[in-house]
Design a protein around this nucleic acid. Structure first.
Ligand code: MN
Ligand code: MN
Ligand code: ZN
Ligand code: ZN
Lengths: 138, 138
DNA sequence: AATAAGAATGAGAAGCTTTTTCATTTATAT
DNA sequence: ATATAAATGAAAAAGCTTCTCATTCTTATT
């Protein structure tokens, strides 16, 4: 139930927030730009402004409900935060996004931070490449 | 000699390109936004337009002279390409940037790409954290 | 050294993503 | 039901980057 998630996050239960949460949880894909979300709202006949989409996504991020990524596409990408940290491999041809996690890399990152004298707050690893499908249709 | 580098890259030797190359090579810092470069040009009394700075930096990137990074600051950051791939650790407080390379991580990235069926073209690892200085002045 | 041809530049306009403003609407507590 | 504060939509504006186009400069050729 989306309303519970919102209340738990300290956010009032409003139609835009519920609808956006539904889309993010819909599961067709996991990674959305603000524009992606906005388009899906339009398709669903919801009259929710783009400014609200940006506002709500940022609030969700602050509340820890979603994670924001900076793929090198020029815009932010959001996904539900399921508590499972992972990294991304992005197809530079078709935009497909796959996820992975490597414990060895995770551990090494901590060591590197310490060695450099940093207190690590976050990290992200992006691998860019050409996915299997795009290699075929070359 | 900057003119040689430019000619080798197939670019005509123009004052903006020489001056920008000088700044990038100056060595005070290694990571510059377009705005950073533009400001240094102004300070040096050069009347070079911001549009030219962007144009030239992109040309340098295409020519392989510089590398472009997408820290999550909302703007591109450029540095001379010295042929030594490395990753970055960025202070979220003061913007300081340190560099590192970890061969184990590099190797693991290749393995991950293969496993996922991707032909890797590029990768970047950003660690965000609070640097030593910023931890003190808390 | 002068010339011609094409490339590069600067200024400003415009593009794109994102944020802000503000009048209006809505959620929530009473 | 009412009051209060928060949220929303529309439009404007901000911030970074690219584009347009008239002018200037580089380079190759006389
Ligand atoms: Mn993901
Ligand atoms: Mn670097
Ligand atoms: Zn692909
Ligand atoms: Zn710092």
């Amino acid at each position: 139930m989306e309303s519970q998630d919102l209340r738990k996050a300290g956010l009032k239960v409003t139609l835009p927030r519920v609808k956006i949460l539904e889309i993010l949880e819909s599961g067709k894909t996991r990674h959305f730009s603000a524009e992606d979300v906005y388009k899906q709202l339009l398709e669903a006949g919801e009259e929710i402004g783009l400014a609200t989409v940006y506002r709500v996504l940022t609030q969700f991020e602050t509340a820890g409900l979603v994670t924001r990524h900076h793929f090198d596409t020029g815009h932010s990408v959001f996904e539900m935060n399921l508590g499972n940290h992972h990294d991304h491999i992005v197809c530079v041809r078709c935009g497909r996004v796959d996820e992975f996690i490597d414990e060895t890399i995770e551990k090494l990152q901590h060591e590197i931070s310490e060695k450099a004298g940093y207190k690590m707050t976050d990290h992200c690893l992006y691998i860019y490449g050409v996915c299997q499908d795009c290699q075929k249709s070359e």
